[in-house]
Design a protein around this nucleic acid. Structure first.
Lengths: 223, 223
DNA sequence: CGGGCGATTGATTGCCTTCAAACGTGGTGG
DNA sequence: CCACCACGTTTGAAGGCAATCAATCGCCCG
């Protein structure tokens, strides 16, 4: 529904560095590499570009008034992020791992969507998709226990990989915790518990094998 | 930023029953009254209309897989809700109190935004505003304690009333709890505690007087 | 081999939930 | 008009789950 996950995408520069917003809106941009934990843009900065992940992973986040961070989403290859309506960013973005991204001038998107109805609709669809995702996230944060949150997270992530039962997590436990509104320790315990129940296997801390998707789905509903 | 709060709006039928999406998109519809707790539309139903609150209040919500509900937003007079990109609703809506709403056929909105760029932009702006609100909500749900959540809720609501330090809550403690990811009891205790600290006064359970907005703002950040 | 960082595990604390009971208010019927 | 009931709210006591504090482990890299 969202993009080609982990496309081989022989990332050799020539993928003509553009973002496809929809069937009728593809815009050229430049490719750029960000290192692990490097800031891509910050909240309240002028929004000059719209981004698409080519390789690696990106997190977008917002900070609560006293400095705690809430990660709002992880963006994998194919995902577009950083699109704003106003001219300032309303969230921050950082590279989770080293990441290649395509940057397209926001003014190009604005111009296209101010001239072409199809383009405008593509941009609307993108925003609406993000809204839907944000609402799902709110349900998880508001109404689920720790085990359920982690299970939901894994299932959501698994949906985005071609190999649906074997995932390489690009993000740390701290990232997962800040995405799910938990602590590192609680996330870690949830992983261990799932392994104990044979729902998953953890060959290494960043590599998850889903042994029993049904068990995960159960956990997600009532842990 | 959002609408005229609590406008007197001499609700006598003649307010020509239309929704203004933006400076260049106003569409006619029909007015309808919903009683307290009456369903306006349900998740997964066909989205036939877009709505605007005239009087009363409306809640939109989604249910977690095991039935717990998460309220995603409260909609007061002037607010538009029920707008979807696809042709099915992705959330449910119910009247919090008896409410008058204007209903405009979704097909009219679609047609307008498929023909007129200004209209398309108005609809995009609405969606983006909702997205921004949803993200704020995620920060509250993911990173704030009980007292902070309730304080944030009151401040957010106070911003929407003309009289910024005196509010009549249209919703029950249960609604507030399901919005903030808490229980009724915890919400009630938070109110009592704020009253004890003289941040607010509670002449009645639904009537809140903000005595010390600064204290509330402090609570919101670090309770 | 040693250092540093991320992850795991354990022990304890604390906050919110749960369970339970009492209170108040608004509405209805006697 | 008052009695009574229903429902929403408040308050109290107890329990549970996740946070916090703390120590160890494992791994990558120098």
């Amino acid at each position: 529904m969202r993009s080609q996950p982990q496309q081989p995408n022989q990332a050799g520069a020539a993928a003509h560095d553009s973002i496809e917003f929809g069937p009728s809106l593809t815009l050229r941009g430049v490719r750029m590499r960000f290192e692990r934990n490097e800031e891509i843009f910050g909240e309240a900065e002028t929004a000059e570009y719209v981004y698409r992940v080519v390789s690696g992973a990106v997190r977008t986040m917002r900070f609560s008034s006293d400095g705690r961070r809430q990660i709002l989403g992880f963006h994998l290859p194919g995902d577009v992020f950083g699109w704003e309506i106003g001219d300032t960013h309303t969230l921050s973005a950082e590279a989770v791992s080293a990441a290649d991204v395509i940057m397209v001038r926001r003014s190009l998107v604005e111009k296209a969507s101010a001239q072409d109805l199809q383009a405008a609709h593509a941009v609307l669809a993108l925003t609406a998709q993000n809204l839907n995702t944000a609402r799902d996230h709110a349900v998880v944060l508001g109404r689920k226990g720790a085990g359920e949150r982690v299970a939901a997270f894994l299932l959501q992530l698994a949906d985005r990989f071609v190999s649906r039962n074997e995932l390489d997590l690009p993000m740390s436990r701290a990232d997962i915790a800040d995405y799910l509104g938990l602590t590192i320790e609680t996330v870690s315990r949830a992983f261990s518990e799932m392994e104990r129940q044979c729902a998953i296997a953890l060959p290494s801390s960043r590599h998850v094998v889903v042994r029993n998707p049904a068990a995960l789905a159960d956990l997600q509903m009532a842990a």
